[in-house]
Amino acid sequence: MPKDLAGFAGLSTPLVADACVRLGEPLRAAPAGILPVVDGQRVAGRALPARHHGSVDVFLEAFTRAEPGDVLVIDNAGRLDEACVGDLAVLEAGAAGVAGVVVWGLHRDTPDLVGIGLPVFSYGRHAPGPVRVDPRDPDSLDTARFGAHEVTSDDVVFADDDGVLFVSAARADAVLATAHGIFRTEREQARRIRAGETLRAQTGFDAYLAARAEDPSYTFRRHLRRTGGAIEE
């Protein structure tokens, strides 16, 4: 596991995403639209996967495996016809030491979740809960699908107002370190813009246009890598 998930506190998911691209790590983002119930909520921790089949028992069993700071990752196949998690499950998550919940699907009991305060991320709110109980898979607590990605306990979850990312725990330290470097570069670029030095001047944009005129394959991203900029990865 990464040594310092607290290092995410000064970062953002866009910075983590850029760091993944810079390092050649798989970019595993939750589908667009997975957002916090309360603006400003953020969480980072080991993934605790659970595939939902219509009954809350899978969450309760997942909590028996939880370690402090884990993030419950619920695979409800992106369904928009039912909410699969509400106030009682989230309260129990907190009692189990879980730091947050991310749902590939919907939540309910929104005012209660706001009051509970545990970070919850989902597609949004929906009053009806499940009316189905489907057969449970034998590996329902081992892997969770989240959009196009498979998530296991070997992954770390990073989530904030811009969405949710999954990163291999074995690479999380390197990703965070790179994200901090990108952050420092971008803050310095922002400071210089405010001081009157345009981003075009900082990045030698005129030189880039001249180089591209000579070599149409010369990309701005390649130019930034040569000049040390951090606008895009």
Rank of each mutant, 00 (worst) to 15 (best):
F146T: 02
T64I: 07
R42V: 00
R226M: 05
A50C: 11
Y123K: 14
F220A: 03
T198E: 05
I34T: 08
G163I: 03
A30V: 00
G94E: 12
D162I: 03
D18Q: 15
D160N: 08
R191C: 00
V157K: 07
P111A: 12
E25Q: 08
S55V: 12
A62D: 10
Q41M: 06
A17N: 03
A9K: 15
R225P: 06
G33I: 09
D57N: 08
L141P: 05
V175A: 03
A159Y: 02
A89G: 10
R187M: 06
A230W: 05
A89C: 10
R221S: 09
P36A: 03
L23T: 01
V103A: 02
T143H: 09
C84K: 00
T198Q: 02
D57E: 11
R184H: 06
D161N: 05
F63C: 11
D109G: 13
E188W: 07
I116G: 09
G97M: 04
R132Q: 13
D70E: 08
A99M: 01
D160E: 08
P49R: 07
D206A: 15
D75P: 10
L106R: 15
D161A: 07
H126R: 14
A144C: 03
G124F: 09
A66F: 04
V120F: 13
A177Y: 00
D162N: 04
A44G: 02
S217E: 13
P49A: 00
R187P: 00
E232N: 02
V114L: 12
L48M: 07
L27M: 03
T110L: 15
R42E: 04
P111K: 14
L15K: 03
P36T: 01
A195K: 12
A201V: 12
T152N: 01
E67V: 11
A29G: 03
L165E: 04
D81F: 08
F8W: 11
D70Q: 08
R225L: 13
P14R: 02
A170V: 01
V58N: 03
H52F: 14
G229L: 03
R225Q: 10
V103C: 05
D109A: 15
D142G: 13
L141R: 04
G7K: 15
A179F: 01
P130I: 07
E150D: 14
L199F: 14
G229Q: 05
A44T: 02
P138F: 15
A62P: 04
A32C: 01
C84L: 01
V98G: 12
I74L: 15
V151F: 06
P216Y: 09
L113G: 11
L27D: 03
A29W: 00
L209A: 15
V151A: 07
A207N: 12
I231Y: 05
A99P: 07
Y123C: 15
R194C: 06
R79S: 10
P2D: 14
A83Y: 09
L48I: 09
D18R: 13
Y218F: 11
S140F: 14
R22W: 14
R171G: 01
A66R: 05
L72D: 10
P36W: 01
A144N: 09
A9T: 14
R42G: 00
T178P: 00
E186P: 00
D154M: 01
A172R: 01
L80Y: 00
W104R: 02
V133C: 08
G196D: 07
L209T: 15
D155H: 10
D139F: 14
F205K: 13
D87E: 12
E233M: 09
